[in-house]
Measured scan of single mutants.
Amino acid sequence: FHVTIHVGDITFHIHGVSEEEVKKLEELVRRGADWREIKKTIEEIEK
Score class of each variant (00 low, 15 high):
Gly32Arg: 01
Lys40Ile: 06
Glu44Cys: 03
Glu44Ala: 07
Thr4Val: 12
Ile38Cys: 03
Phe1Gly: 09
Ile38Asn: 00
Glu37Arg: 01
Lys39Gln: 15
Glu19Ala: 14
Glu44Leu: 06
Arg36Tyr: 10
Asp9Tyr: 09
Ile14His: 01
Val17Asn: 02
Arg36Asp: 15
Glu37Cys: 02
Glu37Gln: 04
Gly32Cys: 08
Thr11Glu: 07
Glu37Gly: 00
His13Asp: 10
Glu20Leu: 12
Ile14Asn: 01
Arg31Ala: 14
Ile38Pro: 00
Glu44Lys: 04
Lys47Gln: 13
Gly32Met: 03
Thr4Cys: 05
Leu25Arg: 00
His6Trp: 11
Val22Tyr: 15
Lys47Phe: 09
Glu43Asp: 11
Ile42Ser: 00
Glu46Tyr: 15
Ile45Gln: 01
Asp9Ile: 07
Phe1Ser: 10
Lys47Pro: 04
Gly16Lys: 04
His15Val: 12
Thr41His: 14
Trp35Asn: 02
Glu43Met: 08
Arg31Glu: 10
Lys39Pro: 00
Phe12Asn: 00
Glu20Phe: 12
Glu19His: 14
Gly16Cys: 11
Glu43Pro: 01
Lys47Val: 07
Thr11Gly: 02
Arg31Asn: 14
Ile42Glu: 00
Lys24Met: 14
Trp35Arg: 01
Ala33Trp: 01
Thr4Ser: 08
Val3Arg: 01
Val17Arg: 03
His15Lys: 12
Arg30Cys: 05
Gly16Asn: 15
Phe12Pro: 00
Trp35Pro: 06
Thr11Lys: 07
Ile45Thr: 03
Ile45Lys: 01
Glu27Pro: 00
Glu37Leu: 05
His15Ala: 12
Arg31Asp: 12
Glu27Lys: 06
Asp9His: 12
Ser18Glu: 04
Glu21Thr: 15
Thr4Asp: 05
Asp34Tyr: 02
Leu25Ile: 11
Val17Thr: 03
Glu20Lys: 10
Ile45Leu: 12
Val7Gln: 04
Phe1Asp: 07
Lys23Ala: 12
Arg36Trp: 14
Asp34Met: 02
Lys23His: 10
Thr4His: 08
Gly16Ser: 11
Thr11Met: 07
His2Gly: 07
Asp34Gln: 04
Gly8Leu: 06
Ile5Pro: 00
Arg30Ser: 14
Phe1Trp: 14
Ile14Ser: 02
Thr11Cys: 08
Glu27Trp: 05
Glu44Gln: 08
Phe1Gln: 12
Lys23Trp: 10
Ile38Lys: 00
Glu27Ser: 07
Ser18Leu: 06
His13Arg: 08
Ile38Trp: 04
His6Gly: 04
Ala33Ser: 05
Gly16Tyr: 11
Ile10Asp: 06
Val22Lys: 14
Glu19Ser: 11
Leu28Thr: 02
His15Glu: 12
Lys23Ile: 09
Val3Pro: 01
Glu44Thr: 04
Ile10Ala: 08
Leu28Tyr: 03
Arg36His: 14
His2Glu: 11
Gly8Met: 07
Glu20Asp: 11
Glu26Asp: 08
Glu46Ser: 10
Val17Asp: 01
Val3Met: 13
Val22Met: 14
His15Gly: 09
Glu43Arg: 05
Ile38Arg: 00
Lys40Asp: 11
Thr41Ala: 15
Lys47Asn: 12
Lys39Leu: 14
Thr4Tyr: 07
Thr11Ala: 07
Val7Ala: 08
Asp9Leu: 08
Gly16His: 13
Val17His: 02
Glu19Asp: 08
Glu20Tyr: 11
His2Leu: 10
Lys24Tyr: 11
Glu19Pro: 10
Val7Ser: 07
Ile42Tyr: 02
Phe12His: 04
Val29Asp: 01
Ile45Asn: 02
Phe1Val: 08
Lys23Thr: 09
Ile14Tyr: 05
Leu25Lys: 00
Arg31Tyr: 05
Phe1Ala: 09
Ile10Val: 12
Glu19Met: 12
Arg30Val: 09
Lys39Val: 10
Glu19Ile: 14
Asp34Arg: 03
Val7Arg: 05
Lys40Glu: 12
His6Met: 12
Ile5Thr: 01
Ile45Ser: 02
Asp34Ile: 02
Thr41Leu: 15
Arg36Met: 14
Glu21Val: 15
His15Cys: 10
Ala33Pro: 02
Glu46Met: 15
Phe12Arg: 02
Thr41Lys: 09
Arg30Asn: 14
Gly32Pro: 03
Glu46Asn: 13
Val7Met: 13
Glu21His: 15
Thr11Leu: 08
Trp35Asp: 04
His13Tyr: 13
Ser18Met: 08
Leu25Asn: 00
Arg31Thr: 13
Val22Trp: 14
Phe1Thr: 08
Gly16Phe: 13
Ile42Asn: 00
Glu46Trp: 13
Gly16Asp: 12
Glu20His: 12
Lys23Pro: 01
Phe12Ser: 01
His13Cys: 11
Glu46Leu: 15
Glu19Trp: 15
His15Ser: 13
Val29Pro: 00
Asp34Phe: 02
Ile42Gly: 00
Gly8His: 05
Lys24Asn: 07
Ile42Trp: 04
Ala33Ile: 03
Glu21Phe: 13
His6Ala: 09
Lys24Ile: 15
Asp34Trp: 01
His15Asp: 10
Lys47Gly: 10
Arg31Phe: 06
